[in-house]
């Protein structure tokens, strides 16, 4: 077991250093890259916090939807194959519910400020987890 600070706190320290101290001292492309780096560190912190619950919830839903067991990656490959062959499609309510939740989860980690995500939240799409 490691000591304090934990990994989320360490990431936050680096993120704040890059975004608040480094980026303002740079210009042009380097300043842009530093802002992107700060955003990536923020994304990593969100993923660290949300990933375990999201993966467990997705795996449970996919096992029910597909009637199969496996890793989340294997289940997703099976789901893709069933959609491509037309066994599951737009008129399957449980599929759409699953895809909405899974995608809401991706956005909560990747880009929580994205306009399309905010619109979906306003329209009461189901959340992941």
């Amino acid at each position: 077991m490691q000591d304090k600070p934990d990994i989320a706190d360490l990431m936050m320290a680096v993120q704040e250093f890059i975004s608040a101290e480094i980026a303002p001292q740079l210009t042009g492309h380097a300043a842009f890259s530093a802002r992107v780096a700060g955003n990536v560190l923020a994304l990593m912190q969100r993923e660290l916090a949300l990933r375990p619950g999201f993966r467990a919830a997705q795996t449970a839903r996919l096992e029910t939807l597909l009637g199969a067991r496996g890793s989340l990656e294997e289940l997703n490959h099976t789901l893709c194959a069933k959609i491509a062959e037309g066994t599951l499609g737009l008129d399957d309510a449980p599929l759409i519910d699953h895809l909405k939740r899974a995608t809401m989860g991706k956005l909560a980690i990747d880009q929580p400020n994205y306009a399309g995500y905010k619109t979906a939240q306003e329209n009461d799409w189901p959340e992941e987890g």
Partner: peptide, 26 residues
Amino acid sequence: RTVERAAIGRRASETEIDLLRMLEGQ
């Protein structure tokens, strides 16, 4: 290996939420 290239990879999910909304006719 630039950080921008890495970050854009994580923007695929934006199009997924847009596609789901569009396929529902929104």
